[in-house]
Amino acid sequence: MFEQQEIINITKEELLSRVTPLFKDEYRLVQICCTRLDKLIVDYTFDKDYKFLGLRIELPLEGSELPSITDVYFAAFAYENELHDLFGIKVIGNKIDFGGKFYRINEKTPFNKKQEA
């Protein structure tokens, strides 16, 4: 038996206004995940009473920015640092910002390498 998974596409401007009611509704932040295709897809996953809810934001490959949700969900700080270190997404307003030192890695943004010209 597989659970139903609902994923809603939103824009990055709406993010905070979407997330805040979820927090008040006692949704749990499950994870934030980024996928690199021809664009970056950031998935915010929430759960309440085993019900799955996903928010999806599409971003350009380079120079993308996201507002931080650590004001609402403090637990997001680790995921947001991960987004910055592995994919090069600049997260604005992160409560615990490691400034690119979350993972000790040799190359910058290994999961989102710049295309060679």
Binding site: V30, Q31, C33, T35, R36, L37, D43, F74, A75, F77, A78
Partner: peptide
């Protein structure tokens, strides 16, 4: 999280392990 694109290689394979979620608590 698995995302397949119809080839034998996956587009994305992502793991979020429990300890990662347990660090903020």
């Amino acid at each position: 999280y698995v995302k397949g694109n119809g080839t034998k290689f996956l587009d994305r394979f992502r793991v979020r392990t429990p300890t990662f979620a347990n660090i903020p608590p």
